Amino acid sequence: MDEEYDVIVLGTGLTECILSGIMSVNGKKVLHMDRNPYYGGESSSITPLEELYKRFQLLEGPPESMGRGRDWNVDLIPKFLMANGQLVKMLLYTEVTRYLDFKVVEGSFVYKGGKIYKVPSTETEALASNLMGMFEKRRFRKFLVFVANFDENDPKTFEGVDPQTTSMRDVYRKFDLGQDVIDFTGHALALYRTDDYLDQPCLETVNRIKLYSESLARYGKSPYLYPLYGLGELPQGFARLSAIYGGTYMLNKPVDDIIMENGKVVGVKSEGEVARCKQLICDPSYIPDRVRKAGQVIRIICILSHPIKNTNDANSCQIIIPQNQVNRKSDIYVCMISYAHNVAAQGKYIAIASTTVETTDPEKEVEPALELLEPIDQKFVAISDLYEPIDDGCESQVFCSCSYDATTHFETTCNDIKDIYKRMAGTAFDFENMKRKQNDVFGEAEQ
């Protein structure tokens, strides 16, 4: 370990593993360490099931009705991949897709007046949907046509809207959309967690709705994908990429100290040895004095023996409960997957309800979601602090990732990755940087 590296990475969460992969592909010498004996950090999948019970201090362990412990891979952080989103792009560019198998999530649902409705995925579904009345549908269709044709580089498509100054509230007004449709559009399509976006320039919202539609167009059922064997497969896929390009991995490796000289990182000390480096990437748990708390998320993992009611017996789905429907500031989400994804025993389902904490009784906040899941065989409640770095790391060369937020997709995580890359490399992130180099010394032969 007593060696000189360009970059040392602490923690094998998804953000850290993707950055480690990119740095290795770009010719950097990388050492990647984790104090845990497993990959994934906060974003790991726990197996066998006995391990999950232990982690949540349920000492009696799983009953026999849960089947074989080894058949379970339970995500600690519930997220899906947008089919046309940035993480899929990263997987394709790096060819990490060859280590993973994905399934399309069967449906996306939205909560309205105590019931759940399928988010329409085709024009026919939209016309048949009970989510809105006849005239509302016509106006909504006009709005969707506007979004589909919108091109930020072609003012002819703006229809009198200025993407940089017109607020989204004004765009909704222009198409005369009612409150329910606005809730549905902002939260189930643009996937905002709160209503803060309404008074911001509309460009980002329009682009988010386009991303949803384009992702949906790829597979038809929903815009989301999920990897077989759980999300823990993602960091491992990128760790393989890093290793192929010469990255060194050490799990179960305690970090005793991060060594600084004149305010700059110069190395990491572990078990009496020092590895030197020019730059350091880590998750917040490794540098508690360089991060601040930015809120909390509650996630309740529920094991069920039945599909969720009114989802047409889907073996995977997402449910969004827009905040307006339950008098909150932030949406509540449910991600459900099952034995069909090799993450649970035969006939079992895993539904994870999550939201940003707003009160001193977080469990009560998630109740509307839990009511949709009854009866629940077993619950595991996790309340996590969200951390963000206190500075950009440019001076110390210590670059810290943000905690995983309450969103049900990876777009915010990818933004964090691109942002850290830019601060480390001094140049904007470009997907081309992730391409495997042809015929290089570490390149794998085609399968």
Rank of each mutant, 00 (worst) to 15 (best):
D2N: 08
D2A: 05
D2I: 02
T15N: 03
T15D: 01
E16C: 02
C17P: 01
L19I: 14
V25C: 04
V25G: 12
N26E: 11
N26P: 03
G27S: 12
V30M: 03
D34H: 01
D34C: 14
R35V: 06
N36G: 14
P37L: 09
G40R: 00
E42G: 09
S44M: 02
S44G: 07
S44W: 10
S45A: 03
I46M: 05
K54G: 04
F56L: 11
P63A: 01
M66I: 06
R70W: 14
D71G: 10
D71E: 07
V74D: 08
D75H: 06
F80S: 04
L81T: 14
M82T: 06
M82W: 12
A83V: 08
N84E: 15
K89I: 06
L91T: 13
L92M: 00
L92K: 13
L92I: 01
L92R: 10
E95Y: 02
E95R: 15
V96G: 08
V96L: 10
R98P: 08
L100S: 07
L100R: 02
I116R: 01
K118W: 02
V119F: 12
T122N: 11
T124V: 13
A128P: 03
N130L: 13
M132L: 06
M134K: 00
R138L: 10
R138N: 13
F140S: 02
F143K: 01
F146I: 10
F146H: 13
F146N: 15
A148P: 03
F150C: 03
E152S: 07
N153D: 11
D154N: 09
S167C: 13
S167Q: 06
S167G: 09
D170S: 08
K174E: 08
L189I: 13
L189R: 04
R193L: 09
T194L: 06
L198I: 14
D199Y: 05
P201I: 13
K210F: 07
K210V: 08
L211V: 02
L216W: 10
R218V: 15
R218M: 12
G220A: 06
S222D: 15
P223T: 00
L228T: 15
L228P: 08
L228R: 04
G230A: 03
G232H: 15
G237S: 10
A239T: 06
G247L: 10
Y249S: 01
L251F: 07
L251V: 12
L251S: 04
K253Y: 15
K253D: 14
D256R: 02
D256V: 13
D257N: 05
I259P: 02
N262R: 14
V265M: 05
K269H: 06
E271K: 09
G272A: 05
G272E: 11
E273M: 03
A275S: 05
C282R: 02
Y286D: 02
P288Q: 01
P288H: 05
D289G: 10
K293W: 14
A294Y: 15
I298R: 01
I300T: 12
I303G: 06
L304D: 02
N310D: 10
N310F: 07
D313N: 11
S316K: 05
C317H: 04
I321F: 10
Q323P: 08
Q325R: 10
V326E: 10
N327M: 12
K329E: 09
K329L: 15
S330C: 01
D331G: 07
D331Y: 02
I337M: 11
H341L: 09
V343L: 02
V343G: 01
A344D: 14
G347Y: 15
K348E: 07
A353C: 01
S354C: 05
T356P: 10
V357M: 12
V357S: 10
T359R: 05
T360M: 10
T360A: 10
P362H: 00
P362S: 06
E365Q: 06
V366M: 11
E367C: 15
P368L: 08
A369K: 03
A369I: 12
A369P: 00
E371G: 12
Q378W: 06
K379I: 11
K379T: 07
F380V: 13
V381T: 13
V381G: 06
A382D: 00
S384T: 07
D385Y: 04
L386T: 14
L386V: 13
G393V: 07
C394K: 13
V398M: 11
C400S: 11
S401T: 01
D405L: 04
A406E: 15
T407Y: 11
H409L: 00
E411W: 15
T412L: 11
C414S: 12
K418H: 05
Y421N: 04
A425P: 05
A428S: 06
D430E: 01
F431T: 04
E432H: 03
M434N: 11
K437E: 10
K437T: 13
K437I: 00
F442V: 13
